[in-house]
């Protein structure tokens, strides 16, 4: 039942969102919402930290942008770009999942840089430093409103698909790997294979988001494939909290809103963001979603189920 309510709440958010935030901002929030929620499949559910998600976001944005520039229709560009990031994620994942922990972080980070420089040098295709410009939105989603509706529908589609994955047996295997990889191996699961699947799912949906991103400002800026973007993706996800399915979405909304707001107030706003991140890590490791949850619990201690989840989270963190 609860899931149903949350789903309704999410729908309400999609309707209310455009009144809370400027249109371009809320659209971008939804797109990065897909990124963060899917990254959480890998980060929160499977316990793998990839520092190279911008690679898939950017590559897919380039593919979709190039196809649109080449005159292909949108309903072809988006699936092919998504498929493209799926294939690349299998290739890169194959090398990366062999390693664990820090080495996995280093590898994904380094792959990200490699793709960044490919995009940077390959000017004839990607536009290099200038970015890929002049991508036109199809007429039927050209207004801000129709484009928002389009993005919201894609967002819902992605969220439902990801939710199905999380609640399927596959999702349970991911959690098992996170909790105890050697046990999973002992039971007979091929841990590397499932890690690769998890990596691919996250990367494919990140790619889907990338293929939508190109439509917002009719271009692919080169910074969307830079490793700093990968950092942003991780921070948004962690900021929201990896403990719940929709937590990362709050992270995205908070992160984009805070960075836009602080950047108006003080030119040295990254300092404030740094302080907030540090505080989150040291004191509110569950992210904003857990913070809100705790605040809520203080006022009305009714939720019994969350305690159980709390336990799961604590075992993960300790």
């Amino acid at each position: 039942m609860k899931n149903k309510y949350s789903f309704i709440a999410l729908i309400i958010f999609l309707f209310v969102g455009p009144f809370l935030f400027p249109n371009a901002t809320i659209t971008e929030m939804l797109i990065f919402g897909i990124v963060a929620i899917s990254t959480n499949i890998m980060l929160g559910y499977t316990g793998m930290l990839s520092f190279g998600q911008a690679l898939f976001f950017g590559t897919s944005a380039y593919i979709s942008g190039l196809m649109l520039l080449g005159g292909f229709p949108l309903f072809l560009a988006i699936p092919i770009a998504t498929l493209g990031s799926f294939v690349i994620s299998l290739f890169i994942g194959y090398f990366c999942v062999k390693r664990e922990g820090l080495y996995f972080i280093c590898l994904t980070f380094a792959f990200n840089q490699m793709f960044y420089f490919i995009a940077y040098v390959w000017t004839e295709v990607t536009g290099g430093e200038d970015g890929l410009v002049g991508v036109e939105r199809p007429a039927y989603i050209d207004t801000q409103l129709t484009f928002y509706i389009f993005t919201a529908v894609m967002f819902l589609f992605a969220v439902i698909a990801l939710y199905k994955i999380v609640t399927s047996p596959l999702g349970l295997i991911f959690k098992l790997i996170r909790e105890n990889a050697s046990r999973a191996e002992a039971i007979g699961y091929n841990v590397r294979f499932y890690k690769l699947i998890s990596f691919s799912i996250a990367s494919t949906f990140t790619g889907l988001a990338g293929s939508l991103y190109v439509l917002i400002h009719s271009m692919v800026p080169i910074d969307q494939i830079h490793w700093l973007k990968s950092g942003d993706i991780i921070f948004m996800t962690l900021f929201g909290g990896v403990g719940s399915f929709l937590g990362p979405l709050i992270g995205v909304v908070g992160y984009i809103w805070l960075s836009d707001t602080f950047s108006i107030i003080w030119a040295r706003w990254p300092l404030i963001m740094g302080v907030i991140f540090a505080i989150v890590v040291l004191y509110f490791r569950g992210g904003v979603s857990e913070l809100l949850e705790n605040l809520f619990k203080k006022y009305k201690s009714i939720s019994r189920k969350t305690e159980h989840e709390q336990d799961i989270k604590n075992t993960k963190l300790n």
């Binding site: 980060l43 316990g47 930290l49 520092f51 922990g101 820090l102 972080i105 950092g231 991780i234 921070f235 962690l238 990896v242 040295r268 990254p270 300092l271 963001m273 740094g274 302080v275 907030i276 991140f277 540090a278 989150v280 890590v281 040291l282 490791r285 993960k316 963190l317 300790n318």
Partner: peptide
């Protein structure tokens, strides 16, 4: 305080420190 935490939190913290020091 983070040796027992996951790499993601260590990374977030150290990157936060990097932002702070750079600013």
């Amino acid at each position: 305080r983070l040796y027992h935490a996951h790499h993601d939190y260590q990374l977030l913290f150290l990157f936060a420190c990097a932002l702070i020091i750079q600013e």
